[in-house]
Simulated assay, not measured.
Amino acid sequence: MTQATVRPPDARAVAVRAGLSRGLTETRHSLTSAGDIIWYLLMPVIFAAVLLMMQGSTVPGTDFALGAMVLPSLIGMSIAFGGLSGPASVLAIEREDGTLLRAKATPNGMLGYLIGKIVNIALTTFVSLVVLIIPAWTVRDELRAGEPRAWLILVAIFVLGLVATVPVGAALGSLLTKTSQTGLVFMGSMLLIAPSGIFYPITALPEWLQWVGQAFPFYWLGLGARSALLPAEMVTAEIGDSWRTVEMVGALGAWAIAGMVLAPILLRRMARRESGSSVAERRERFMNRGY
C-alpha cells in the first residue's frame, strides 16, 4: 500500500486567513476603545446633527427637503474619506511603532497585514455609515429608501468605493514618514470636498471647479449614492441631466487600477526600508519630544 502524501497548507492561503482574523479582531478591539469610537463616529455625528437641523428646509425653488438632498452625498463622501484617510493614518502610525516591521519579518506577513487592514477599514467605515444613515428616517418620505434596488446600488457603491480608495490610501500612507503628516491627508480630503458637489449641486459651481471635482472619487461616490436614493426628477441638478452610471464606474475603476498598481510598489519599497534601528530611532525621537 502506498501512503497518501499530506500536502502542507498553502502559505498565502494561511496569510489570507490570518489577515481576515486579524481584521475582525482589530475591529472588535476598536469598537471597545473610547478613543477609536470617537474618531470613527465624530464626523458622522456632526453630519447627522446638521441633517437634523435641516428639518423643514427645502432646496431653493423646490419643495424637496434639503436634508434629503445632502444625505446621499454625505454617504458617498464618507466612503471616500474612510478609504483614503483610514489606511494612510494607520500605516503611518504602525510604521512608527514597529507593527509593520513585525509583519515584514513573518512569511507572507505583509499580505496578511494588508488584508487585515482592508477588513478593518471596511467594517469601521460601515459602522460610520450606519450612524450617518440614521437621520434618513426623518426624510424617508423624500428618499427611495424603501426600494430594494436603492440598497443594492448603495452596497455596490460601498464595495466599489473601497476598492477605488483603499489602495490609494495605502499608497499615500506608504509615502508618509511620521504620524504628524497624516493631517496632510485629512486636510487634502477636506479641501477636495468643496468642489465635489457634496453640500451644493456641482452644476452651480464654475466650470473649472466642476472639472476639478470630477477628477476625484468624492464626486463620483456622491453621485452614485444620489442615483440610488434620490427621486428620478432630481437628476436635473446633475451634469448633463444624467446620473452617468457608466462614467462613474469608469472613473472609480481608473482610481482602483491606479491604486492597485502603485500601492504594492510603494508598500514594498517602504517595507524594504524598515529595520529595527529605524524603528528604534523613531521611538527615541518620540520619547524625546518636549525635552
Score class of each variant (00 low, 15 high):
residue 27 T to G: 11
residue 268 R to S: 14
residue 178 K to I: 02
residue 57 S to E: 15
residue 133 I to Y: 10
residue 262 L to R: 09
residue 68 A to G: 07
residue 87 P to M: 13
residue 101 L to Q: 07
residue 205 L to S: 01
residue 53 M to Y: 08
residue 109 G to L: 06
residue 243 W to Q: 03
residue 104 K to T: 03
residue 163 V to Q: 06
residue 178 K to S: 12
residue 81 F to S: 13
residue 78 S to P: 03
residue 39 W to I: 12
residue 33 S to L: 12
residue 272 R to D: 15
residue 248 M to F: 01
residue 6 V to S: 12
residue 165 T to M: 10
residue 140 R to C: 04
residue 149 R to C: 00
residue 50 V to R: 06
residue 220 W to I: 00
residue 205 L to Q: 01
residue 22 R to A: 09
residue 160 L to H: 02
residue 231 P to R: 03
residue 264 P to T: 15
residue 235 V to S: 10
residue 53 M to G: 08
residue 162 L to W: 04
residue 175 L to P: 05
residue 215 A to Q: 03
residue 175 L to I: 10
residue 58 T to Y: 07
residue 52 L to R: 10
residue 138 T to H: 12
residue 147 E to V: 02
residue 87 P to Y: 09
residue 131 V to L: 12
residue 140 R to T: 10
residue 225 A to L: 08
residue 148 P to Q: 03
residue 140 R to N: 10
residue 271 A to V: 04
residue 113 Y to K: 06
residue 103 A to L: 06
residue 177 T to I: 07
residue 173 G to C: 05
residue 225 A to K: 04
residue 280 A to F: 01
residue 15 A to V: 06
residue 9 P to T: 06
residue 135 P to Q: 08
residue 238 E to D: 08
residue 150 A to S: 14
residue 245 T to D: 03
residue 87 P to S: 12
residue 199 F to N: 12
residue 191 L to R: 01
residue 103 A to T: 00
residue 164 A to R: 00
residue 288 N to D: 09
